[in-house]
Write a protein that binds this DNA or RNA. Structure first.
Length: 264
DNA sequence: ATGGCTGTCATGGACAGA
């Protein structure tokens, strides 16, 4: 089995001890990180390498930034979402690993938040989603197992949040945001969590403010979207909720998919 | 709550997050 996680760690320097603790206990073969908030040269590669991970990063100063950690050798690593050479925000990195009988392709993505609506931030979000969906569509032609792992900043359905009324005016829950996310399913991608459960109230983010964690006022915005060839190998998907209660937690928790694949 | 935390950069407080 190969497990692939997505986790917005909200700052790799602030989260290094927490991240290493989880990875030592229960580290999946592949971990897609978002919001590393670090330039590539500042990323603490050594402690991750010391516990068996190869490290690929696409960082930027202060905010954003994505990475892929992999116990299997990473090949063909490509930063930047195609489609706009003027987009300087570090929100996308893609790579492949060899598995028995072929390859597994993995993307770590950090989709723009988009708030407040009615501004260029929201139009940037929608433009980014359009570019991302075009890339996702093109990748289907490869007919490979592919995991699009990331912080999508989209609440797919009303039962993916505690109170839909609270999110009605938010970029994460706009009809346009949700429609763009649904396009991935229309293309043939499978939401790994939703393939495993239809339970309401499964969340991946709880705000630091207002006792959101204690009240379980969460939202589900971190998703693992599987190509048909990956979905055929799906055996499970779980939210690693307990790390939200640790000291110095990220406001997001890992979501992990298990695929019936073996290292080459 | 017109943002109640948190992280970054930088060393005070703006900016970004969701």
């Amino acid at each position: 089995m190969i497990r692939v996680a997505t986790w917005n760690i909200n700052g790799v320097k602030a989260r290094i001890d927490t991240a290493l603790e989880w990875l030592r206990q229960d580290g999946p073969e592949i971990v897609c990180l978002q919001e590393i908030k670090s330039v590539d040269e500042g990323f603490p590669r050594e402690p991750f390498e010391a516990i068996g991970y190869n490290v690929a990063t696409h960082g930027q100063k202060g905010f954003n930034g994505v990475a892929i950690l992999s116990k299997l050798p990473l090949e063909d690593v490509t930063p930047r979402l195609p489609g706009d050479d003027d987009d300087v925000q570090a929100r996308f990195i893609e790579g492949i690993v060899s598995v028995r009988g072929g390859i597994l392709r993995v993307v770590s993505l950090y989709l723009p938040n988009g708030n407040p609506i009615g501004t260029e931030k929201f139009s940037y979000k929608l433009a980014w989603m359009k570019r991302f969906n075009a890339h996702a569509a093109a990748r289907l032609a490869l007919e490979e197992p592919l995991v699009l792992a990331g912080d999508y900043n989209v609440i797919p359905e009303p039962w993916d949040c505690h109170d839909p009324k609270v999110w009605a005016g938010d970029a994460l829950f706009q009809p346009e945001s949700r429609a763009a996310f649904r396009e991935l399913a229309a293309l043939g991608y499978t939401d790994a969590l939703r393939a495993c459960t239809d339970a309401a109230g499964v969340y991946s983010f709880w705000d630091y403010q207002a006792g959101a964690w204690q009240k379980n006022h969460g939202i589900r915005i971190d998703h693992l979207m599987l190509s048909p060839q990956a979905a055929d190998r799906l055996t499970g998907c779980e939210v690693v909720k307990h790390v939200r209660a640790w000291e110095k937690p990220s406001d997001h928790v890992p979501v992990v998919v298990t695929l019936d694949l073996e290292a080459a």
